[in-house]
Amino acid sequence: MKLTELMDKSLVDIDLNGSSKNEVLDEMIEKLDQSGALKSKRKFRKTIEKREKEGSTGIGFKVAIPHGKSKAVTSPKVAFGLSRTGVDWNSVDGEPARLVFMIAVPEESAGNEHLKILQMLSIKLMDEQFRTELLQVQTVDEAYELLDQIG
């Protein structure tokens, strides 16, 4: 199984409009909702906010991974957004986030296939070369091709 089974091209945005963390979160939640992954946008937003309060998901290296495990999620999905300018995410290293992966996981689900995929994504994000390539993509197809390598 591959990461791209949890996302399609409609969940890839190579030019996020939002200029703040909140705007970017809204933008990406909207995408997940349109893909049919959410039962309730409002509830999922709350889950995401709660996780951000426990500690920023800006892990540094220009990467943020807002994520929520919630009953408001019907099926596991990942959205990817690239911010050209970068937004402040309270990251540990102080750098603005440019690569944003939003992860939606249902509260209960049989099997852990999707968790394995998120594990692979996490590992891949520690790879500096991969991050650099992802920062330089010009089209959705290019981004999708890179993400397709995961899994």
């Binding site: 892990i59 994520h67 495990k69 994504l121 590992i123 520690m126």
Partner: peptide
Amino acid sequence: CPNGIAHTYMAAES
């Protein structure tokens, strides 16, 4: 990590 979805594996890889 609390959710055990991402940070756990990033720290391991790092």
